[in-house]
C-alpha cells in the first residue's frame, strides 16, 4: 500500500485496563486480570479518507478514538501519525503540535459545550490555547471561517449566542466548528449524529463530507450504525470485543460481508424495504461477552452460528479475501 499517503497507522494497538483485585485475591496471590478493551488492532487511514469504525457497545470503538486523540494511553503496539510514532508521547506541551493536527468531535453536543461560554469563545478556545493566532483580527477571521465551514451562516450572528440558545443541530455544528478551527488533518468523530433528530443528521453528515472534499481532511467516523457507515465512509472496519473482524470498502462490507459477525450485524439492522438477504444465517443469541473474559480462540465463536473446532482453539488471522478486504475468520479465504 501507499505508505506515504497514510496519515494514521495503528499497528497491533492495545489498550488493557488492569483490574484491581480485592484484598482477598491479593492475599491469596490470585492473578489480577485486565479488561482488554482494545486487543491488537491494525488499521490505516489515508489522507482525505473517511474510515468508519463500527461496533456495538463494549467493542472498544470509543477507546480507539481516545487513543488516537491521545486522551488515553495505549498499553501496547504503535500509533503512527504521518510516519511518526506517537504512542509514547505525553504531556501538554509535547503534544501541542499533534493536537493541532488531530481533533475530536464528541457525541453529546450538550455536554461538550461549556454552557457559560459564547459560541465565539468556544470556537476560539483551541486557537488560543494552541497559540495559532497572533491578534484579535486573526482570531475573528479564523472563528468566522470555522463557523462557516460547519454551516453556521452568517457566522457573526452566532458569536454572542450561548449553547442553550441553539438547536441540537446547531450545537453539533458548533462542536464541529471548534474541531475545525485549527485546520486539523484528521478528525475523530465519535457518534457525531446519534443524538440528533433524523431530519438533522443528513445536514451534519454533509458538513463532514464537505470538509473532506474541500480540505482533504481525513475522518475516523465511530458509529454503531452500519447503514450510516456505508453512507459516509470509503472503508468500514468492524470491531468486535477489541479486535477488528473485518475491514473493507463500504460497499464490500455492506453487500459482500465475509465475517459472520458482520453478517449478523447487517441482518439485525432494521431496514426499510430490504429483506432480500435476510435469513442466510440464524439471528445471534446472547450478548457481547465481557472484555475481561475474552473467549479463547476466535473471540466470536461462542455466538457464531458457523463455529467449528478450530475456532474454539485458534485465533484466526486477518485473511485477505479481496482487494483491500480482510476478514478474521477461518472460513474466509
Amino acid at each position: 500500500m501507499r505508505d506515504t499517503a497514510d496519515i494514521l497507522r495503528l499497528e497491533n494497538l492495545q489498550v488493557h485496563f488492569p483490574i484491581q483485585g480485592g484484598l482477598f485475591d491479593r492475599v491469596l496471590g490470585r492473578p489480577s486480570g485486565a479488561v482488554r478493551a482494545v486487543d491488537g488492532i491494525d488499521l490505516t487511514i489515508g489522507r482525505g479518507e473517511i474510515v468508519a469504525l463500527v461496533g456495538e457497545s463494549g467493542s472498544g470503538k470509543t477507546t480507539v478514538g481516545r487513543v488516537i486523540t491521545k486522551l488515553a494511553q495505549p498499553t501496547g503496539g504503535n500509533l503512527l501519525f504521518d510516519g511518526r510514532d506517537m504512542s509514547s508521547e505525553r504531556g501538554a506541551s509535547p503534544l501541542r503540535p499533534y493536537r493541532r493536527r488531530v481533533q475530536m468531535i464528541f457525541q453529546d453536543a450538550y455536554q461538550a459545550l461549556n454552557p457559560r461560554h459564547t459560541v465565539f469563545d468556544i470556537v476560539a478556545e483551541p486557537l488560543r490555547s494552541l497559540r495559532l493566532v497572533e491578534n484579535d483580527a486573526q482570531l475573528t477571521e479564523r472563528v468566522s471561517e470555522a463557523l462557516t465551514g460547519a454551516g453556521l451562516n452568517p457566522p457573526g450572528d452566532f458569536f454572542a449566542r450561548f449553547p442553550h440558545e441553539l438547536s441540537g443541530g446547531q450545537r453539533q455544528r458548533v462542536v464541529i466548528a471548534g474541531a475545525l478551527a485549527v485546520k486539523p488533518e484528521l478528525i475523530v468523530a465519535d457518534e457525531p449524529v446519534s443524538m440528533l433528530d433524523v431530519s438533522i443528521r443528513a445536514q451534519i453528515l454533509q458538513v463532514l463530507v464537505d470538509l473532506r472534499d474541500k480540505h482533504n481532511m481525513a475522518l475516523l467516523f465511530i458509529t454503531h450504525d452500519l447503514p450510516l457507515a456505508w453512507l459516509i465512509a470509503d472503508r468500514i472496519a468492524v470491531l468486535y470485543l477489541g479486535k477488528l473482524v473485518e475491514i473493507g470498502s463500504a460497499d464490500d462490507i455492506t453487500y459482500n460481508p465475509r465475517h459472520p459477525y458482520t453478517v449478523a450485524l447487517l441482518n439485525a439492522t432494521p431496514q426499510i424495504g430490504g429483506d432480500a438477504d435476510r435469513g442466510k444465517l440464524p439471528a445471534l443469541q446472547g450478548e457481547v461477552p465481557s472484555a475481561a473474559r475474552v473467549p479463547k480462540g476466535c473471540r466470536f465463536h461462542p455466538r457464531c452460528p458457523l463455529a467449528f473446532d478450530r475456532c474454539r482453539q485458534e485465533e484466526p488471522p486477518a485473511n485477505e479475501v479481496g482487494p483491500r478486504h480482510m476478514s478474521a475468520c477461518w472460513l474466509a479465504k
Partner: peptide, 16 residues
Amino acid sequence: SIPNPANGKKMIRPIP
C-alpha cells in the same frame, strides 16, 4: 434522510 443500503442510493437529502 435514512441511509438505506437496500436501494443502493448513497445520496440522502437533508431536510433544511
